[in-house]
C-alpha cells in the first residue's frame, strides 16, 4: 500500500486513535465539567441566583478570598527568595533543599491538615499554651491559612527555579559592576526577566489555594458562616441533598478553573520563551 509519509499512520488509524482519545477525555473530563453547569441551572436561573445570594455562601466566598490573599503572596515571596538563593548562588546542600521544597507535593492533603492539628489542636503540643493565651489556630482562620500555605508551598518556587537557573547570573553581575545596588538590580534586571513565570506560578498557586479541600477540611471545624471555605460549603450543601445549591456554588469554582486555564494558555502561547523550559510546546 503506497503511503505519502513514510513515518506516519494511515488516515484511518489516525482517526481511530483521535476518536479513542476524545471519547476517553469526554468521559473523564468534559462530561463532568458540563454537568456542573447543567445541574446548577436545572431549576432555572432564578433558583441559581438565589443559591448564590445565600449569606453562608457569601461568607464562604469572603473566607476563600481572604485565605488566598494571605497564602499566595506569602508563597510568591518564598518562591522568589528560594529561587534567588538557589539559582544565583552555589552552596552545599542545594539539592537537598530543592527536594525539601517539593516535599509538600508528595504529602496527602489530609496529612497536610493533620500535622497542624497535632501541633496546635486542643490535644496538640502547643494546644494548652494556646488555650491559656486565648489564641485559636485550629478550627479557625489561621489554621486554614497554614494548611493552604503548606499545600501550595512549592508552586511559585518550582516555576522560577528552572527559569532563573537557565538565565544564569551574567546580567545581574553586569548591573552590580556598573554600580547598581542589589535591590535595584533585582527590581530592574531580574524581575523583568522572570515576571511572566512569576505570574504563571502565582496563577497556579492561587487556583490551588482557592480550591483546596482535604487539608482545609481537617483544620476548619466546618463552622458555618465562620470557617467554611467555598469547597467546604459545596460539601455541606451536597451532603444535605441540596444539589442545585451545591452545583451553583461549584460553578463559581469551575469558572475560576476555566479562567485560570485560559490565562495559563495565553501565557504559554505568548511568552513561551520567558517561561521555564518545561512549558515550551
Amino acid at each position: 500500500m503506497p503511503r505519502t509519509d513514510p513515518i506516519g499512520e494511515s488516515r484511518l488509524i489516525q482517526w481511530v486513535l483521535i476518536g479513542i482519545s476524545l471519547t476517553f477525555l469526554a468521559f473523564i473530563v468534559f462530561l463532568p465539567l458540563t454537568l456542573v453547569f447543567v445541574e446548577a441551572l436545572r431549576k432555572g436561573f432564578g433558583v441559581y441566583l438565589a443559591a448564590l445570594k445565600d449569606a453562608e455562601t457569601w461568607a464562604a466566598l469572603r473566607l476563600t478570598l481572604t485565605v488566598a490573599a494571605i497564602s499566595v503572596p506569602l508563597n510568591a515571596l518564598f518562591g522568589i527568595c528560594a529561587a534567588w538563593s538557589v539559582t544565583k548562588h552555589n552552596f552545599a546542600g542545594k539539592n537537598l533543599l530543592l527536594s525539601l521544597i517539593d516535599l509538600p507535593f508528595s504529602v496527602s492533603p489530609v496529612i497536610s491538615g493533620l500535622i497542624y492539628v497535632l501541633l496546635f489542636g486542643a490535644q496538640g503540643w502547643f494546644g494548652p499554651w494556646l488555650r491559656s493565651h486565648h489564641v485559636e489556630i485550629i478550627f479557625a482562620v489561621p489554621g486554614i491559612v497554614l494548611a493552604t500555605t503548606f499545600v501550595t508551598f512549592p508552586f511559585v518556587a518550582r516555576e522560577l527555579i528552572p527559569l532563573m537557573q537557565a538565565q544564569g547570573t551574567e546580567e545581574e553581575e553586569a548591573s552590580l559592576s556598573l554600580g547598581a545596588s542589589g535591590l535595584h538590580t533585582f527590581w530592574h534586571v531580574t524581575l523583568p526577566n522572570i515576571k511572566w513565570a512569576l505570574l504563571y506560578g502565582v496563577l497556579l498557586c492561587n487556583a490551588r489555594a482557592m480550591g483546596e479541600f482535604g487539608a482545609v477540611s481537617v483544620v476548619s471545624g466546618h463552622v458555618r458562616g465562620l470557617t467554611n471555605t467555598l469547597p467546604l460549603q459545596i460539601e455541606i450543601l451536597y451532603n444535605e441533598y441540596n444539589f442545585t445549591a451545591a452545583f451553583a456554588v461549584a460553578t463559581l469554582l469551575a469558572s475560576l478553573a476555566l479562567v485560570t486555564l485560559v490565562l495559563k494558555t495565553i501565557l504559554e502561547w505568548r511568552y513561551a520563551d520567558q517561561l521555564a523550559a518545561s512549558h515550551k510546546h
Binding site: 473530563v29 482535604g214 469547597p231 478553573a257
Partner: peptide, 12 residues
Amino acid sequence: AIDLPFALPTAV
C-alpha cells in the same frame, strides 16, 4: 483542557 484536573477544585 488536559490541565483541567489540575485547575478544577477536587470537591467540584
